[in-house]
Amino acid sequence: MQQLETEIKILIIEAAGLEDVTPDDIDAEAPLFVEGLGLDSIDALEIGLALHKRYGIKLTADSEDSRRHFANVRSLALLVAAQK
C-alpha cells in the first residue's frame, strides 16, 4: 500500500506538473484540492486521465463517489487497489 501511495504521489506530481513538490512533501491524508496541495479542476481531469492510462481506473457514474475518491492520496490508492 505504501508503495502504491508513493506511485500515486509521483503520478500526481507528473500529471499536475508540480515542479517544487517531492513525494515526501505530500501527506497521504491531506486534501488534494482547495486546501493541502491546492489542486484545481484541470488537475482533477489530468489526474483522472493519468490514473485511467496507468491503472485502467474507471470512475463510477456517481459524482459524489468521484469526489470521495479524489479526496487524498490514500483514498486514490484504495480506489486503485480495489480495481487492480
Binding site: S41, I42, A44, L45, G48, K58, L59, T60, A61, D62, S63, S66
Partner: peptide, 24 residues
C-alpha cells in the same frame, strides 16, 4: 454537474443527451 468524463459516459449510456461541455 457531471464533472468527469466517466460520469458523462455513464449518463450517455442510459439515454439520449445534449452535453454542455468545456474545452478543458
Amino acid at each position: 454537474s457531471l464533472d468527469y468524463p466517466e460520469e458523462v459516459g455513464a449518463s450517455l449510456a442510459r439515454t439520449d443527451s445534449v452535453w454542455i461541455a468545456s474545452p478543458a
